Computed example of a mutant assay.
Amino acid sequence: MNIKYDLIVIGGGALGAFHAYHALEAGLKVAIIEKDKQPISATVRNFGQVVPSGMDTKWQNYGRESLKIYDDIQSRFDITVRKNGSVYLASNQEEVQLIEELSTINKHNAYESHLLTKEQCLEKYPGLKSDYVLGGLFFPDEVTVEPRVMINRLLEFLIKEKGLNYFGNTKVINCDAVSGETIVTTANGVVYKTSKVILCCGSEFKTLYPELFAKSDIEVTKLQMLQTKPQLSYELKGSILTGLSIRRYEAFYECSSFSEIKAKEEPNSFEKKWGIHILFKQATDGSVIIGDSHEYADAANMDDLGFDLRMDVDDFMIAEAKKIFNLPTFEIQNRWYGMYSQCKENDIFQHTVDNNIHIITGIGGKGMTGSAGFSKENIKNIFNLK
Rank of each mutant, 00 (worst) to 15 (best):
M1N: 15
N2T: 12
N2K: 12
N2M: 07
I3Y: 07
I3M: 15
K4M: 11
K4A: 06
Y5A: 08
D6T: 04
L7S: 09
I8L: 09
I8S: 09
I10G: 05
I10N: 07
G12V: 02
L15P: 04
G16N: 03
A17N: 01
F18H: 14
F18P: 14
H19Y: 10
H19T: 00
A20Y: 07
Y21V: 01
H22M: 01
H22V: 00
H22W: 08
E25W: 03
A26C: 07
L28M: 15
K29N: 12
K29C: 00
I32E: 13
I32T: 09
I32P: 13
E34C: 03
E34L: 04
E34A: 04
K35L: 08
D36Q: 13
K37A: 14
I40K: 15
I40V: 12
S41Y: 14
S41F: 14
N46Y: 01
N46I: 00
F47E: 05
G48K: 02
Q49R: 11
Q49D: 07
V50A: 00
V50F: 03
V51M: 10
V51Y: 11
P52C: 06
P52V: 06
G54Q: 15
M55L: 14
M55T: 06
M55P: 00
T57N: 14
T57A: 13
T57Q: 15
K58W: 06
W59M: 01
W59G: 02
Y62S: 06
G63D: 11
G63L: 08
E65Q: 11
L67V: 02
K68R: 13
I69V: 14
D71W: 05
D72Q: 11
I73K: 06
I73T: 08
S75C: 07
R76I: 01
V81D: 00
G85T: 01
G85S: 05
G85F: 08
A90D: 09
N92T: 00
E95G: 01
V96S: 14
V96D: 13
I99L: 09
I99A: 06
I99S: 08
E101M: 01
T104N: 14
T104W: 08
N106P: 01
H108M: 14
N109D: 15
A110I: 07
E112D: 13
S113C: 14
S113K: 03
S113W: 06
E119N: 13
E119M: 07
C121P: 14
L122E: 02
Y125D: 06
P126V: 03
G127N: 08
G127R: 02
L128Q: 03
L128C: 05
K129F: 00
K129H: 00
D131A: 10
Y132L: 09
V133A: 05
V133G: 04
L134T: 06
F139E: 04
P140D: 02
P140Q: 08
